[in-house]
Amino acid sequence: EDPKKEILLAMLMVDKEKKGYVMASDLRSKLTSLGEKLTHKEVDDLFREADIEPNGKVKYDEFIHKITL
């Protein structure tokens, strides 16, 4: 499956209130437990690539855009 789609799906599952962003810690939890599970190192690399703080907010569109360039 398309990794971009899988990450967006994980974000939507976490963002039940439809705020347009999720906490990095919640996204990490989903990405390491769903679908093609990522390792913590892979998530760290994704966050670093997208300039996301480990305890920060992750906005869908910015995150998807940064990791798919």
Rank of each mutant, 00 (worst) to 15 (best):
E53F: 01
V14F: 06
M23E: 14
S25H: 10
K4I: 13
Y60D: 01
L8G: 06
V43M: 07
D45L: 03
I7Q: 15
T68I: 09
T39W: 02
D2R: 07
Y21H: 08
G20E: 14
G20C: 01
H65R: 14
V14M: 14
E53N: 11
N55R: 04
L38Y: 06
F47M: 15
R48W: 03
R28C: 02
D2V: 09
L27Q: 02
L27V: 04
G35A: 07
R28V: 02
A10F: 04
E1L: 12
K4M: 13
L8V: 04
E17I: 08
K18L: 03
E6I: 04
A24M: 05
T39E: 05
Y60V: 13
D15F: 08
V22Q: 03
E49R: 03
E36W: 15
K59Q: 06
Y60W: 10
K19A: 11
T68V: 09
E17T: 07
V43G: 01
H65W: 00
D26K: 03
Y60P: 04
S33E: 10
K4Y: 13
D45G: 05
E6Y: 02
S33R: 08
E62P: 01
D44T: 03
V58F: 06
F63K: 03
P54S: 08
A24H: 00
K37M: 12
A50G: 04
E42F: 06
R28Q: 03
K59V: 06
E49C: 04
T32S: 06
Y21S: 07
D45E: 14
L69A: 15
M11A: 14
L38W: 14
L69H: 15
P3G: 00
L69G: 15
D26W: 01
E17H: 10
D45R: 09
K5C: 00
R28I: 02
R28H: 07
T68K: 15
E6P: 14
L69N: 13
H65F: 00
V22W: 01
I64W: 07
K57G: 02
A24R: 02
Y60N: 05
S33W: 02
M11H: 08
V43P: 01
F47V: 05
F47K: 03
D61P: 02
T39I: 02
P3T: 14
L27D: 05
L46Y: 05
F47D: 00
R48E: 12
N55W: 05
D2T: 14
D51G: 15
K37S: 11
L46P: 01
L38K: 03
